[in-house]
Every structure is written in C-alpha cells, then in structure tokens.
Design a protein around this nucleic acid. Sequence first.
DNA 1: CTACAAATTCAAGTCGACTTGAGGTCAATA
DNA 2: TATTGACCTCAAGTCGACTTGAATTTGTAG
Lengths: 161, 161
Amino acid sequence: MKFMDISEVSKQTGIAASAIRHYEEKGLITSVGRRGLKRLFGPDVLDQLALITLGKTGGFSLEEIKAMFGPDGRPALSRPGLHQKADDLDRQIQTLEALRDMIRHVADCPAPSHMECPKFQQLIRISGRRKRGERSARHAKPSDRFPLAADHHRLEKNKMS
Amino acid sequence: MKFMDISEVSKQTGIAASAIRHYEEKGLITSVGRRGLKRLFGPDVLDQLALITLGKTGGFSLEEIKAMFGPDGRPALSRPGLHQKADDLDRQIQTLEALRDMIRHVADCPAPSHMECPKFQQLIRISGRRKRGERSARHAKPSDRFPLAADHHRLEKNKMS
DNA sequence: CTACAAATTCAAGTCGACTTGAGGTCAATA
DNA sequence: TATTGACCTCAAGTCGACTTGAATTTGTAG
C-alpha cells in the first residue's frame, strides 16, 4: 500500500493530475515507476508537492523551486544563492506587512478617499523605504518605490536585453 | 512643473511606459489630460503606481488591486472584503516565514538531502498547519498541505466550472 | 473475454500582464 | 517651415503554468 497512482496523489494534495504530470515533466518530482502506463508515486511526493505549493505561494517560478528543493534533495543553488533567496523573502514579508496594514487602514479609515488620508500617505512613504534587490511574485523589480529609480536615461526598455 | 509626461513618470518609478499605458487602459490610474496626443500625469500617479507595485508584490491581480485602491480613491470592495484580503495576507506572511526558514535550513544543513533531515521534515509539517482560505501569488489555492483536501471525489477537475 | 473507467501522450488552447512592431501624429526646435 | 523625436494607437506576440481534447492503452470487474 506504499505506492499511489496519480489520482490518489491528486486526492491527497488537491493538486490536479495534469499539474502533477506537468511537475514531473519539468523535473520537480519523480515517479517511482509504472504499472503498465500508469505512474506510481512514493509517499515522498506528498512532501515534495507541499514544498512546491509553498514555493509558489512565495511567488517563485517552478524553475526556482526546482533549484531550491529539487526531487533529488540536493539544491542546485549555492549556499549564498539560497541565503539570497531567504533575504529576498524577508524583504517581501516586510512589503506584505506594509500592504496588509494599508488594506486594514483603507477598510477602517473614514476619509472619503484613502489618498487624502495623511496616515495612508505615511504608510505609502514607509513602504518605499526598502533596501535594494526586491523580488516580486513573478519577475524581478528594478526599483521599489523609486529611490532614485532612474539609473540612467532609460526610455522604454526597462528590461534587461 | 506639476505635470509629467509618461517618460517622466517612467523615469521616476522605473515602470515601463508601456506598462503605465496598460494600467491606464485597465483603469488602475488616470491621466489628468493630454498635451496634443501625449498624456499628462499629476503627481498623485506616483503614489498610485507605488501602490500597484506593492499590490503585485503581494501577488494580487490588477483587478484586485483596482478593487482595493482604485484611482478614484474609494475601494470597490466592502469593508469585510478588505479585511478578508488583509487576513489572507497574514496567512501568506506566515507561509512565507515558514518557507524562508526552510530555505535557510537547506542552506546550512549538512544532511546530504534535506528530505532526510528530521528538522526539515518538521518544518514541512509545521507549514501545513494553516487555516482555510489560502491565497497564493496568482490563482487561489484549493488546499494547502492537504488537511483532508479531498472535499469529494474530484477526478481531475480541481477548478471551478 | 469483453467492456469500461482511468491513465497515458501530444498538440493546442487559455489567462494575465505586459512587450513589441508598424504606421501615424504633434510640439518644439533648427 | 520642415524635421525630428517622443508619444500615440492597435494588433499581435510572448512567457509561465497549466488545462483541455483527441486518440490511445490498460488493468480490472463482470
């Protein structure tokens, strides 16, 4: 009773079978073998899928997740690379805390427009005071609340070549 | 000197002009008028764009951001709706903290495979103990680490019809 | 032994958030 | 006044992460 077919894994995790196949294709998980055509998964896959779900919540791409927690269990990323990711997460967490506070404020503030509320304005300013190297859910940020964002005269191409 | 053209806004914020136009099209910001063909923006747009950037970091879609902080300054979302978003964020923050801890652990743990490390295993279990209603960066989650995820017999269609 | 539900592959489609490109318009210089 | 360069519009393209559909292949239940 150790091995599960894909529908069992799907049931246990709530992840669609098509997505599970997709993760296997991309090398994030591996099946232990086949019974006929059908994939068989070991119990470890449940933890790996939990990790994938977690990573996605953090806005990481499947590639990044694979680099951090590959199915082999050995990260493809260097130790400093991993610490970098962790530091990015710390910054993202702070951003999220700021955002949460602003949303709560908007919910409760009696001002007709939150933009007119001095407290809200202040929250925006605070949120801008982050260090460099911000990382967002999906693609990296060139600048966070424009701390002298205009590195040079960039006239449309704000992306790396 | 109050009004800026799009390239000025782009320089100040680091956001591509094409993206700024896109936000205007989607109704997240508004320009104060035109000089000939060219859009003119007031200074407020800088705060609004900072808010958009912030929202995206939180994994919100442009639609959601618009509902929370529309350019009119009045949220389209009800007070409970907003508190819901804030609570979602709180949960997301906890998830991110767990993820950060795991990444740091992977970086420092001497075990050949993190999956074999009992401490790591433990971190995964902990991360699974969240409440319902998780929201991820991009599309909602049906279940987080499968706390009896199989609501019924769902045999592939894990998405709303 | 046959039927059938459940899996499989592979190609194509979808969705959000932009970007890119072609062709057009203007306000400010030279 | 004639250029020019920044901006404009609109259509189409891109990218990641899947989903969907059509055409097969099984293992198992009847």
